[in-house]
């Protein structure tokens, strides 16, 4: 498994997630796209750890990325719940108060 192989898989996952984040109207589905993007970052980090610098720093960085993934999901669900409670909205198009 070369570094390029890891990075190609990571890029594919990141771009699939980006497609979801840009195209989905549902906030929960949008968050799924963000999760896939961070998933790609994790794969790229594993590739760099294995093929460039196999020391503890890379593993710590991956641990931070995985933690960010969980925290993003928790905050996302809380925001969706607050938004739904206040405005009965679960779609991005209906939650455009700050749109210019």
């Amino acid at each position: 498994m070369s570094l390029e192989a890891f990075l190609l898989v990571a890029a594919a996952l990141f771009c699939v997630g980006l497609f979801g984040a840009l195209s989905q109207q549902s906030i929960v589905m949008l968050m799924m796209g963000l999760e896939l993007m961070i998933n790609g970052v994790v794969v790229a980090g594993a590739g760099f750890w294995l093929r460039v610098a196999p020391n503890a720093d890379g593993q710590v960085l991956l641990l931070v990325a995985i933690t960010v993934m969980a925290l993003e999901m928790a905050m996302g669900f809380a925001v969706v719940t607050a938004l739904f409670r206040a405005r009965d909205v679960d779609m991005t198009d209906d939650a455009g108060d700050l749109k210019g």
Partner: peptide, 20 residues
Amino acid sequence: MVHNRRGALLVSGGLFAVMA
């Protein structure tokens, strides 16, 4: 439940091509 599907496909596909 999608909006701007074509634009999202273009952006993500283009980014993948650049990254690859």
